[in-house]
Amino acid sequence: MSSDTHDHSLAPSTAFELLADPCRRGVLYVLFDTGEPMRHEQLIERMLQREVTSFRDRRRLRLELHHAALPKLTATRFVHYDERTRRLHLTDPESELKPYLAFAQSMEPTRTR
């Protein structure tokens, strides 16, 4: 393995840290499932419909996304948020994160799938 490949490799500990939080997992589930850029409000609506987090209140979910989940996800190379258009998208839908996310989703209760 070249050092170039190694530098871009996703360490399991990094993947598990990203997926440890149910709200971050929920964002990733929705983004991976749609595969297209999504407005912030659409993301909230889909997360509430799928019950992928413990938040059932739109306002609380919006705050959690704004202050915790989205900053953590956008600090990675996997999710981009355009503040001007308020759209989120995966930077690489076929990324190294996908198998970890598939495993996490397979372990979730049926309602989140």
Rank of each mutant, 00 (worst) to 15 (best):
Q42D: 10
L43C: 03
I44E: 00
I44G: 00
E45C: 03
E45N: 06
E45R: 06
R46F: 04
M47G: 01
Q49P: 11
Q49C: 15
Q49T: 14
R50P: 08
E51F: 08
E51K: 11
V52K: 05
T53F: 03
T53Y: 02
S54T: 15
F55E: 08
R56K: 15
R58I: 08
R58K: 11
R59S: 09
R60C: 04
R60H: 05
R60P: 00
L61F: 04
L61I: 05
L61D: 02
R62T: 13
R62C: 13
L63S: 12
E64T: 07
L65K: 01
L65F: 05
L65C: 06
H66G: 06
H66D: 13
H66E: 15
H67D: 11
A68W: 09
A68S: 14
A68M: 05
A68G: 12
A69S: 12
P71M: 14
P71H: 03
K72W: 04
K72Q: 12
K72C: 05
K72Y: 09
L73H: 01
L73V: 10
L73R: 01
L73W: 00
T74Q: 03
T74W: 02
A75W: 02
T76I: 11
T76N: 04
T76R: 04
F78T: 11
V79R: 00
Y81C: 14
D82S: 09
D82W: 14
E83N: 07
E83Q: 05
E83V: 15
R84Q: 11
R84G: 07
R84E: 10
T85L: 13
R87P: 05
R87D: 07
L88F: 11
H89F: 13
H89D: 10
H89Y: 13
L90P: 06
L90Y: 10
